[in-house]
Amino acid sequence: MAAALRPVVIAAALAVCGWYGWGYLVPDDEAEIRAVLERIAEGVSSGGEGGVSRIARAAALRHEFSPQVTVDAGAPFERLTGRDAVIGMAAKVAGAAKNLDVRFDDVSIVLGSEGDTADVSLTAYAQLTDAAGGHGVDARELKAAFSKTDGRWLVRAVTLVRAIQPMDTR
């Protein structure tokens, strides 16, 4: 019985390896978008290294954003337009925090019918320790619009989605 099962087990193992290998070598659009988000979260996060390293890491994120990107993530962040402004703010935040851990949870991706746009909903979660040693936690829902340019997925716009709508802004 064991000898008869061996080819089946080997075939199943090869199929699984092939499946993951294919996914690694030829990632689909959703996987690429998730990878962009992962790189942005890692690029903005900081912990332990010097200010110059953090700023350099944030600056490397410019390749993830469209040149005309707009970011409106809500207070205390100003509305930003243009890649340079976004990278500048990312570098400023990364440099100011002693420890900043950013991650994106609840990522939900809807690809456009043409295959070159995508709408992403996510929870941005940040834990930070500021220079004075104070701790803070923030979580907010964001919507990100992606567009595919020259084979790369770039962030085109980020907007805050308010789970609780303030009364004064109605």
């Binding site: 949870d105 609840d106 939900s108 909903s121 929870t123 979660y125 979580a139 829902e141 989605v161 609780i164």
Partner: peptide
Amino acid sequence: AVRIAGGSAVYVK
């Protein structure tokens, strides 16, 4: 509990 996005973080009010 008020859901934020998928619910991994919530407001409690």
